[in-house]
Every structure is written in structure tokens, then in C-alpha cells.
Design a protein around this nucleic acid. Sequence first.
RNA 1: UGGGGCGUAGCCAAGUGGUAAGGCAGCGGGUUUUGAUCCCGCCAUCCGCAGGUUCGAAUCCUGCCGCCCCAGCCA
Length: 570
Amino acid sequence: MSGTDPTSSAAEAPGRDFIRQIVADDLASGRHREIVTRFPPEPNGYLHIGHAKSICLNFGIAAETGGRCFLRLDDTNPLKEDQSYVDSIIDSVHWLGFDWADRLTHASDYFPKIHACALQLIEAGTAYVDSLTPEQIREYRGTLKAPGRESPHRNRSVAENLDLFERMRRGEFADGQHVLRARIDMASPNINLRDPVLYRIRRAVHQRTGDTWCIYPMYDFAHTISDALEGISHSLCTLEFEDHRPLYEWLLAQLPLPAKPRQIEFSRLNLAFTVTSKRKLAELIELGHVSGWDDPRMPTIAGMRRRGYPPAALRDFVQRTGVTKKEHLIQMSLLENCVREDLNVQAPRAMAVLQPLKIVLLNYPEGQTEMLRGVNHPDRPELGEREIPFGRELWIEQDDFAENPPKKFFRLQPGGEVRLRYGYIIKCVAVIKDAAGQVTEVHCNYDPDTRSGLSGAERKVKGTIHWVSAAHAIAAQVRLYDRLFSVPRPDAGADDQDFKSFLNPGSLQLAANCQLEPALQATAPGDVLQFERLGYFVADRCEHSATRPVYNRIVTLRDSWAKLEEATQP
RNA sequence: UGGGGCGUAGCCAAGUGGUAAGGCAGCGGGUUUUGAUCCCGCCAUCCGCAGGUUCGAAUCCUGCCGCCCCAGCCA
């Protein structure tokens, strides 16, 4: 755990889900003296929020029980995998706040031992080389309701199997010509037990083992053996592997392995308004709908990091969604709440104007500048104060002025008063428009007695708005992000090819001409801030610089005014 | 009569025979120089449905209904 900041008191209490209960029972009964878990992603894409659940569960349980957790890259299919994905996985797990010490492993580390296990099965007569074509194997497998048939090669002698398998390994056959299969039960109601394929021939350069092998173990075989070799006590996986458990246990029973891990399944994390299948995420990238795996709209850990979501918020989110076997669809509002809750405590406040409107204070001396003081955090005085320059010309938010205001609008309006945050109360005396009737400037008078801190400052007005001195403002680009899809289940359609038609066209909006208060000159890439009244923002970790500021909106503030507006004028 | 799972509020989720925790969302109110934060209050006569057992059932039994997963030489 990265217990980095002292202020996030949130003790991330574990909770008592059914898996933790099993683990606690196994410790109490003495069945296990130490809990060993593993997070075993395949390096064929970036990790997403669903993986975060598995990461928090596996590393979390190990940490809570004083056990160990392995980060194991399940690299048994060189056709789909890549070192860049390995790097991204390592990066994401670390960033999320977990550490595996010397327990970074790969399924490929065990290729020699997995191969030895295969030989043992062959010698025991419980595995055989099959020479059916892929199509034939499918036919022989039967269907969900009809039993399969035994392959004509099922009863080859041990010697013949040994010979064939050795020649497979040596590369004497073409891809697909033979496979090694477990000899279990072609009539089993569980299709995973109908002589599952254990090894296939695949002439591909593996990112770690190169061309040492041309045969690669299948998931079920490699995974079971890897778990056992690492002494995993509890092998946690998602629901779709429930049907594989009998095979997992069959293999553990056949092989002389050093441990008998217990597989336990839980439901995967489904987040509304997004997709998490690697295939679909890759498609969004290929088609240019997003800029890459770390696009701030992506549900990947890298994307959420770039978006500015704090790792503690992600951990909190995962923890609050619980661990059960129920299918679910978590609302985005829970994630956003976790993000806001963390950022509210962490983020220093600042003023920034996204859609500038010029204010001229007619009664303020031309050329004068004075320094006002603003607190960096309303609840954390230890974060200090800063100076904010004030002058005759200011920028305010276009939305904070209305010529014809709706009911209960207590921002600036003709003849009306409003408080400038940390500054004075101003009164609108004139509205300047261009030939097209667009408001180009608003002229006001300020009340010199109402400066924050003075006794006159006690005078109350309904609204307080943010602003930036035009003479001192920093220009910046701000990207306003919204949900990537406009429906809760983009991938639930009848034909799942269609998910892209639900993309939210407004998921990214550029505010190219933003004006920031000058204190923000010191912002470094990755820094998070609250722009008062607008939301939380992060200086983009890849593109932000002092000379070309680029911010991402992480999440808006809760906005009861927007709700009110929505309710009154549908 | 293929096998394996799952059904507690709008969304999550505790609960393991003694009379429905908590969070998010929502609603109402208070504080506030962020319409934010914070604070207070409200929000399941009921646990997929129907029977049964019991003094007592979300918890046990029976039947039914609904949803998810499985026929890659992917993981």
C-alpha cells in the first residue's frame, strides 16, 4: 500500500465479503498458516477498472492477513501478447498502490515444469496426442445438450504419445496438426471435461522465451500448475471460470504438485456507461474514437490516472462495490462520489474561468492593481494562502451573467449585485453588445467598502462568483470530459458490434481560451486542483507545461443549481 | 430432465431461524464569500413468486418464475 498522504484518513477498512470469510475460516481452522494469492493478467491489453477489483481483492487479502500476493503475467499465447502490455500492467498495479516485492512472475517462467507435467500425464495415460483437425475436434466435442464422441486417437499407446509429443515440441509438425489433450470424459455434462486441449503448436516468437518453444500450454493447464507452483492458497477469479473448477481440481489431483490451491469465483465489476472488453477498447483506439489506452475517457487504469482520478479513490470505489457472486451494474455516480470525496480533501482551490466574459469596473482606477488573499483550502489552513491580483478589467464566466435571468438566478444581472470571491461586491451598470447582439462586455461599479476582510465585507449578497484579473491571467487549454457512452449498457445490444453507435458525441469538449489566476503558473504535470465552483482538474501528465498549460476536468462539483434548472424548465 | 451460477430499495450491499445494517442516488432542512463542502432528517411493513414447517422465516423445505455463464488449438 502506498500510504502516502497523511490526510486521507480513510482507513480503507476491508469489509467482510464471502471470500474474506473463507480466508478467515481457513486461517482459524489451521488449514492454512499463510494466505497466498495472485493477480494473473494476460499481457494482451491495458488493465481496466474491472482488473482493479481483482487487484484490490488479491493484494488486499494478502496484506490484511500478512500473506503474499504474486503479480503473475499469464503469457501463454504469444500471438496476442506484447512486452508493452507487460510494462503497462506493472505500471498500473504500482500506481494503484500495490507492491509485489520479488513476486513478479510469468507463466512462461514455468514452461519447463508445465512441459514436465504434460509428460507425467502422458505416462499416466491421462493425456494423449490427438491429430484431429480443429473442425473435427469441435464436431467430436458434441453440444451443450448432446455428449461428445471419443477421438480415434484417444487410445494411442503411451510410447506413441510420448514420441508424438516430443516431435511436436521439436517442431516437426505444422501448427494445428496435433494437440495434446487430457483424457477425461467425452460424455461429461461439463464441456470443459470433454478431453480439454492442454498444448497446441504455435510457431510464434514469445516476448520472453523467444523461439525456445513452438508448443504452448493452454490457460487451464498453465494456470493450475502456476498456481500450485507458487503455493497459492486461494485462487480468485471471475464467475465465467466456475465451469473450469472441476478441471482445475482434476489437474491438481493428477499431478504431484506442491500445493492444492482452492479456486473461488466472484462476479466481475461492471460499470455503467462504459465497456471493458479489451477487444472493444482496442477497437475504439483503432477507429480513433479515443486517443489511446490512456485517453482520459477510457475505463482503463491508465486512462483514469490520466483523467486525474486518485488511486485511493479507485481503491475506495472497488471496496464499496463489494465482492459477491451477483451480476451487477455499478452506477457511475458511485465512482464519481469516491473521486470527489478524495479530491475534496486533497485538492487546493484556485480560480479559473473556462468561458471568459470581460468585466470592466468603471469606478476602479485605471492601471491600479491590488493583491487580495485567498485560502488554498477552506478546511485545511495548513495549506496556506496565496495572493490574487485584482484590477479594473476582469474575466468572469459567461454563465455567471444573464441579461434575462431565470428565477432564483443569483449571479450577475443588469442592475444586480454579486460578490467577487475574495474581493469586492460589484454592481452591473451597463451591458455592451456587438452588432449581432452578443454581449461582449459588462460594465460594473465596485463597492470599495466590501473588500474581503474589511468590516464592510459583512454586507450580504445572494451570489459569489469566481473571476480572474485580465491583466494577469494565464491562458490555458482545458478539456472537459464526460461519459464515453450515452447509454448505461453500450454492449448489451442484440448485435454487440453496435456498441459504437452509443458513443457520446460530447464526451470531449475543448475549452481553448481559458483564463487562470497567476498562482497556477507553478502547477506541475499531474497536480490536481479544484477550480472553484467548476470542478476538479488535473494538469495533464503528458501534455501540460508551464508555457502551454493543459488541464483535464476530472469531475464536476455536485451542482444543485443545474438540477434546479433542469427541473424548472424541462 | 445438458451442466454451472445468481435473485434483499433506483444502484450496490449486510444479514447464516428472533422480527430488514451501511453506502451511492433521491427528497426536505440548517451552516456557508465555492448554488461545493459540512451538519440534521426522510427514504423496504418487507427480502423473485406460491405454498409448507415453526411460537416465530429474507434465513429451513417443496414447487414455480426470471436472469447470467459454458460447445477457442483465447484467457
